[in-house]
Simulated scan of single mutants.
Amino acid sequence: MNFKAIFLILLLICAVGCKDEVFPKPKAMLRLEYPEMATKKLEVDCAYGFEYSEQAHLELNKDCSLTLDYPDMKGSIFISYKNVEGNLQKLLSDAQKFSYEHVAKADNILEQPFVNEGDKVYGMYYEVKGNAASQSQFYLTDSISHFVTGSLYFYTKPNYDSILPAAVHLQKDVRQIMETMRWND
C-alpha cells in the first residue's frame, strides 16, 4: 500500500471516529415570556369603564358589548353589558349557568368572589382548568343598574397544556379589568 492510501484511511478513521458522543435531549417546557402589562383606560360612551392591556385591540359594538383581541396570543376577551331592570336574579343565574356549561370538558372550575365596596362593584371570577373552550369567565354588577359579563377564549381547539402560558397571561388582564371596573352614572 502506498503512503497516500494509508493517509486517506487514517484521515477517514479520524473523521468518523472523532465525533462527540450523542446524548438525548432532556425533557423541558417551552418558555414563553410576555411583556409586562401596560394598561390604558377604556374611553367609550358606555355605562362602565375599566383599564385593560395596551396589547389588546378594542372592538366596540353599538350595545356597549366589546371584544379585546390579542392577535399575538390568538385569544380574545368578550365583554357584554346589560341593564338591570328587576331581572338581577335571572342575569346572575344565566352567568353562573354559562360558566358551568364548561364542566364537561373542564378538570376543575375555581370560583373567586370579587367585592369592591368603595366603587360598588361585586361579582365572581371563574378560572377554568382543563380542555374547556373558555379559560376564565366573570360577571360584575352594582346590584341595582349594571351587569357585565366577560369570557376569555382562544382561536384554537382547547389544549390546556399548549395554551396555559397565554391563558395565565390573559387572566391577569381579566383581573385588571375586574379590579378597575367603574360605573359611569
Score class of each variant (00 low, 15 high):
135 Q>H: 03
140 L>A: 06
135 Q>E: 11
79 I>C: 05
133 A>E: 09
91 L>S: 06
96 Q>H: 05
115 V>E: 00
89 Q>E: 13
132 A>T: 02
99 S>H: 08
107 D>L: 06
99 S>T: 01
134 S>F: 02
132 A>G: 04
79 I>Q: 05
79 I>D: 00
108 N>S: 13
140 L>Q: 03
107 D>R: 08
106 A>P: 07
85 E>A: 14
131 N>K: 12
80 S>N: 10
87 N>P: 13
88 L>E: 00
87 N>R: 02
97 K>I: 02
124 M>D: 02
128 V>T: 12
130 G>Y: 04
93 S>I: 00
116 N>M: 02
114 F>M: 06
88 L>I: 04
107 D>T: 12
108 N>Q: 10
140 L>P: 03
110 L>Y: 06
126 Y>L: 05
125 Y>Q: 07
128 V>Y: 03
127 E>L: 15
99 S>P: 06
142 D>Q: 07
91 L>W: 08
135 Q>D: 11
111 E>D: 10
79 I>L: 06
103 V>M: 05
137 Q>V: 00
111 E>G: 09
95 A>R: 02
116 N>W: 02
104 A>Y: 07
78 F>A: 14
122 Y>I: 13
93 S>E: 10
81 Y>I: 08
107 D>F: 05
141 T>S: 09
99 S>Y: 07
82 K>H: 15
86 G>V: 10
137 Q>P: 01
140 L>H: 05
78 F>M: 12
90 K>Y: 07
135 Q>T: 01
139 Y>T: 13
80 S>I: 03
87 N>W: 11
84 V>R: 11
84 V>P: 12
134 S>L: 08
100 Y>M: 08
135 Q>M: 04
87 N>G: 12
121 V>G: 02
124 M>H: 06
87 N>T: 10
86 G>M: 02
84 V>W: 10
89 Q>C: 11
115 V>M: 05
107 D>E: 12
92 L>N: 03
102 H>N: 01
109 I>H: 12
131 N>S: 13
125 Y>T: 02
128 V>R: 03
139 Y>E: 09
117 E>Q: 13
90 K>E: 10
108 N>I: 08
131 N>W: 10
140 L>C: 09
101 E>S: 14
137 Q>M: 01
91 L>T: 04
133 A>W: 05
130 G>E: 07
120 K>I: 01
120 K>R: 12
83 N>H: 14
104 A>R: 06
81 Y>P: 10
90 K>T: 10
83 N>D: 15
98 F>R: 14
91 L>G: 00
89 Q>D: 10
81 Y>S: 11
81 Y>T: 06
